[in-house]
Computed example of a mutant assay.
Amino acid sequence: MTSKASISTHVLNLGTGRPAAGVTVVLYGPDGGVLSQATTNPDGRVDEWSTDFELVSGEYQLVFEVGDWFKARGEDSFYTRIPIAFRIERPDEHYHVPLLMNAFGYSTYRGS
């Protein structure tokens, strides 16, 4: 199954209560290599990856480049990047991995 939307994410800036537009997100596959990357849209969502990819069972990682994002807004951030590692057991399912963040903390969960 080749799909740009097999893995989706969105980023919410809890400091402002607004979507975080313009965050670079890099997706790593089970072999540790880069599968694709994207930038969050005005709604804070990745709606399209830079390349198609095929999901297989294994461990994946989304890395959010938040340090650059905060710096571009003239804000300090404790985090330079936020990695979220997760496991895919059923490649035919959709995986939504949101990030809720501010300059000094973050949270995530498996969404729908």
Rank of each mutant, 00 (worst) to 15 (best):
V34Y: 08
P42S: 10
F53D: 02
R87C: 14
V11C: 03
H10S: 13
M1E: 11
G32F: 08
V66P: 01
E89Q: 15
G67D: 01
R81N: 10
T16V: 08
I84T: 04
Y60G: 02
V97G: 03
K4S: 15
P83D: 02
V11S: 01
V66R: 00
T9S: 04
T16N: 09
Q61W: 11
G67H: 03
P98N: 09
D76C: 07
D76Y: 09
K71T: 10
T9M: 02
N13M: 04
S8E: 11
S57M: 15
R45I: 15
L99S: 01
W69V: 00
G58Q: 05
I7E: 00
G32E: 04
E65Q: 12
F70H: 03
R110T: 11
P98M: 08
A72P: 05
G15C: 06
F53L: 10
T24V: 12
H96M: 09
M1L: 15
W69R: 01
P83Y: 04
A85G: 14
E54R: 14
L14T: 10
G105R: 11
S77M: 02
W49R: 08
D52W: 12
I88G: 02
V46I: 06
L12G: 09
S77K: 02
V66I: 07
Y95A: 06
K71G: 08
F64R: 02
G105F: 10
L99Y: 00
P19C: 05
I84P: 03
D92S: 14
K4R: 15
L35F: 09
S36N: 02
A85Q: 14
R87T: 13
I88E: 01
T40S: 07
S57N: 11
K4M: 15
R81L: 07
R18Y: 14
R110P: 10
G33E: 09
G17W: 05
T80A: 10
L62M: 08
G111C: 10
F78I: 11
G74W: 06
I88N: 04
H96P: 04
G29R: 08
K4I: 13
F86G: 06
S6C: 13
E93Y: 15
S3F: 13
T40W: 05
S6A: 14
L62F: 04
T39P: 08
I7W: 03
T9L: 01
H96W: 08
I82D: 01
Y106L: 08
S107K: 11
W69A: 00
A72Q: 07
E75P: 11
S8A: 12
S8V: 13
T39V: 12
Y79R: 08
N13T: 02
T2N: 12
R45D: 13
E89G: 14
Q61I: 12
V97N: 03
F53C: 05
R18S: 15
D68Q: 09
K71V: 07
L62E: 00
A21Y: 03
H96Y: 09
P19H: 06
G15H: 06
F70A: 00
P83W: 01
V25G: 00
E65M: 11
T9G: 03
V26I: 09
A103L: 09
P19W: 01
L99C: 03
S112N: 15
G111E: 07
K4G: 14
S3H: 12
S36F: 01
Y109T: 14
M1Q: 14
E48N: 12
G29H: 06
Y28S: 10
T9C: 05
I7P: 01
V25N: 00
I7S: 00
Q37N: 11
L14V: 13
S112T: 15
